[in-house]
Design a binder for these strands. Structure first.
Length: 716
DNA sequence: TTGATCACG
DNA sequence: ACGTACGTGATCAAG
């Protein structure tokens, strides 16, 4: 009888790759530990050994993917209950292993794994690839597998391979290597898109290599056409899933697999870890990509049916799908940011920040971290004894709103407020933006189309939709954003688009009339609400009317309005009552929207975009109130988002149709920026304004103001 | 990772 | 009686 030396790292690793990938009910892989126990059990039952010596190569363990790593640990735990290295083989051990085996069995745990009816074929044979794309088909899915490592200097992602599926049975995985480049595969897909509907996931990331036929050939703007099944179009399962449920914060392909197919798809990070996919085994790569491709192939028709049922096909095909290409194009263009000027701006801020720090430490009598709300609160409210308004869960509130009230109490407060403002500008904007300037001197933001609950787009890495505007010092940052040589910026923004949409949707006659009468809607509203002639509206009255107008769009509450205007809730309520007397149609409209949302569980925009409102069914009063405000706001904010998206489609394809060189580069909710060639300024400003104003036909006119300038500060 | 704060529409 | 304006993203501190 002899001793079995068992290298558990290698043992589990081999087992993992020899078994189909299955998981437990929580989605954790258990195929490696299952295979290892199964094999070990067989070895031990042969009776050749009397004891096991556990060998564990920690270095090798670090090198394996996470999905294997944790299985090594659980295998070790099963084998060696108390951490022994030497284990004697007896009946107790054999029984324990058998018991574990039945627990781990994929049959026993009844886990459905993404499994194929047909085999995955890996091919690098050019003839085979050519033949593959020459197939006659109505529908195919594809999936680009990108490297985990993001490449510095460019947003262009590294493609490792492409999976493509034509009939749901046979899935091909084509590694990108040698003459089979990502560009080549993209071109093949472009050609295919002419005769075959294609589905993928996150199509925006595919546009680096592939432009669908319907985009390449297109010169016409938005068209509210019916959707024919026979039309060959691209389908993005991510955008589809988002439209069906815009509340989910993070849609991964694994979520789509689970939600629409009840399949557990392994997470990319679990399979490959954080390492580059360049070093991963081809089988693992093809396995992952093919599963994703199959999920798309099977889920896309289901998502499409769902959209059809929800009457959102036109929103999907006529607005969101073409928009995704425009967002890609805007990301790719980017915007020049001047490194040196940003640095100089930051240095200027730093001088004052250092001064303020000194003054604050002196006034406080000690040094502390001004950026820490906790430490700041202790200094202000304990050491200096300022009157505290305990407001947050974790302690004193030191928000600007609170500090402003405290300013007369102690001279330190004003310095802190100024410090805060400057520190924000330095960290988020001066230093923050500089880190995103790429080799082409441009910042390439990411526009996200599947984030917001209302249908707006968002901007990240960096966020170019929140560049300072309201204070002069902050606004100066916009001077670092400049057009390229021979260009200016054309910047157009909608005037009061949300209130105009409210006028349209509520059909309130007075509000509609107000927009036909003139364009200072706040003064007109003040005049009507306070019963004074237009020319005699006081600044305070206008400010109040403006706040009420904002409140109406947000889904008004007397308390919120009172906070904004620093008045009592009773006075705020009076303003609201007067407003609703003036515009009774608005009140009726808001009530009907809430009633409808309560009945249906969602509210919708002019173009059929839905926002589900589970809060309305909540047992919690506050949640229900929130649901009601959201029900009032979402159709307004969402319709404005729809209209801007239509305008972007019209502007983008108009530029293309006219063969202009100028390009859309930014969207900030109600504002578009075009990098405009000097010889195209007149035509571009004209088409930009016109396309924005005619993108929707409302009961009130849409108005857009366009400015030009040689930097973003000047063009606003 | 979460909460507080603050930048935008 | 209760606690609230709508929608985002980045940074910093602290657990």
């Amino acid at each position: 009888m002899s001793k079995l030396s068992l290298d558990i790292v290698d043992f589990v690793k081999k087992a993992f790759y020899s078994m189909p990938a299955f998981t437990d009910a929580d989605g954790n892989f258990i195929n490696g530990v299952y295979g290892a126990v199964y094999k070990l059990s067989g070895i031990l039952k042969s009776g050749d050994y009397s004891e096991i010596e556990i060998v564990k190569n920690e270095d090798e363990k670090e090198g394996v993917i996470p999905a294997i790593r944790y299985q090594i640990d659980s295998f070790e735990g099963l084998l060696s209950l108390n951490g022994e290295v030497l284990i004697s083989i007896n009946d107790e051990l054999l029984c324990r292993l058998d018991a574990e085996l039945s627990k781990l069995s994929p049959i026993g745990t009844a886990i459905k794994s993404a499994s194929f009816e047909g085999a995955v074929k890996i091919t690098s044979d050019l003839n085979e690839v050519e033949a593959l794309f020459g197939k006659k088909a109505d529908f195919a899915s594809f999936f680009f597998l990108y490297d985990n490592l993001s490449v510095d200097g460019t947003k262009k992602k590294d493609v490792i391979g492409l999976s493509i599926c034509f009939d749901g049975k046979e899935i091909y995985y084509i590694p990108v290597e040698n003459f089979i480049t990502a560009d080549y595969l993209g071109k093949k897909l472009s050609v295919l898109s002419k005769t075959c509907s294609l589905a993928t996931f996150d199509i925006k990331s595919c546009f680096y290599y592939f432009a669908p036929y319907e985009i390449e050939e297109r010169i016409n703007g938005y068209d509210d056409k019916e959707i024919n099944d026979s039309d060959k179009r691209c389908f993005d399962a991510l955008i589809g899933a988002y439209l069906v449920n815009p509340l989910k914060n993070d849609y991964q392909i694994e979520d789509v697999a689970k939600e629409y197919l009840d399949l557990r798809l392994p997470k990319k990070a679990d399979v490959f870890g954080k390492d580059s996919l360049r070093n991963a085994e081809e089988k693992a790569l093809s396995d992952y990509a093919s599963k994703a491709c199959e999920v798309i192939y099977r889920a896309a028709p289901l998502i499409r049916k769902k959209l059809e049922k929800l009457q959102m096909l036109r929103l999907f095909y006529n607005i969101e799908m073409p928009l995704s290409y425009i967002l890609f194009s805007m990301e790719k263009e980017g915007i020049i940011a001047k490194r040196d000027e940003l640095k100089a701006y930051g240095d200027k801020l730093l001088v004052r920040i250092v001064e303020l720090e000194k003054a604050i430490y002196e006034a406080a009598g000690c040094e502390f971290n001004i950026n820490s709300p906790k430490q700041l609160g202790e200094i202000l409210f304990e050491k200096l004894g300022l009157p505290a308004e305990k407001k947050t869960k974790s302690g004193y509130s030191t928000a600007a709103e609170v500090l402003e009230k405290l300013a007369p109490e102690h001279k330190i407060v004003a310095d802190i407020l100024e410090y805060r403002g400057l520190a924000k500008l330095k960290s988020t904007y001066a230093d923050g933006l500089a880190a995103y300037i790429e080799a082409d001197d441009r910042i390439h933001t990411s526009f996200n189309q599947t984030i917001t609950a209302t249908g707006r787009i968002s901007s990240t890495e960096p966020n170019l939709q929140n560049i300072p505007m309201r204070t002069e010092l902050g606004r100066l940052i916009r001077k670092v954003f400049v057009p390229k040589e021979g260009c200016v910026f054309a910047d157009a923004d909608y005037s009061q688009v949300e209130l105009r949409i409210l006028a349209h949707m509520s059909e309130d006659e007075e509000l509609i009339k107000a927009f036909h009468d003139g364009d200072d809607i706040h003064t007109i509203t003040a005049s009507k609400v306070f019963h004074v002639p237009f020319d005699e509206v006081t600044p305070l009255q206008r400010r109040s009317a403006k706040a009420v107008n904002f409140g109406i769009v947000y889904g008004i509450s007397a308390f919120g309005l009172s906070q904004d205007l620093s008045i009592s809730a009773k006075e705020a309520k009076e303003y609201m009552d007067k407003y609703f007397e003036t515009y009774p149609g608005v009140k009726e409209y808001q009530e009907s929207v809430i009633a409808s949302a309560k009945a249906k569980g969602y509210s919708e925009t002019m173009y059929g975009r839905r926002r589900p409102m589970p809060e309305l069914k909540s047992g919690n009063f506050n949640m229900r109130q929130f649901g009601e405000r959201v029900a009032m706001n979402a159709p307004i904010q969402g319709s404005a988002a729809d209209i801007m998206k239509i305008a972007m489609i019209n502007v983008f394809f108009k530029l293309k149709e006219m063969g202009l060189k100028s390009r859309l580069i930014l969207q900030i909710h109600d504002e578009l920026v075009i990098e405009t060639y000097n010889d195209e300024v007149d035509i571009v400003t004209d088409l930009l304004t016109k396309e924005m104003e005619k993108s929707a036909n409302l009961r009130v006119p849409l108005s857009a103001d366009c400015h030009t300038g040689s930097d973003w500060y000047e063009a606003k």
